[in-house]
Amino acid sequence: MNKIMLFAHLRDEAGAEYIELQAEGKTVADVKELIAEKYNLTKLDSTMSAINEEFAEDDEVIQKGDIIAFIPPVSGG
């Protein structure tokens, strides 16, 4: 299983700080699509992604036990 950490509006939309998912072998983009559908998460296309606290591109493949984080950039200031 993989832990998917959610921040900002994603956390509010999912109603949880993280979700668990079998994501091994999937790309970051796959996971975005999957959770967008399952949890009605929005604006994932402009959300930054990290695997194990390191920045990750959309085409990166997830390994067993990896922790993924989705961090939506915000505008306010």
Binding site: F7, A8, H9, K43, S46, M48, F55, I71, P72, P73, V74, S75, G76, G77
Partner: peptide, 30 residues
């Protein structure tokens, strides 16, 4: 919620490396 990044030309990635394009409807204080 908040965030920050320090960008030093020639030393670190820049914001365009990270975001690739302007995020539409980034959440605002309003």
């Amino acid at each position: 919620y908040g965030m920050s990044l320090t960008i030093i030309p020639g030393k670190t990635p820049c914001l365009n490396c990270l975001l690739k394009k302007i995020p539409l409807q980034g959440m605002t204080c309003d």
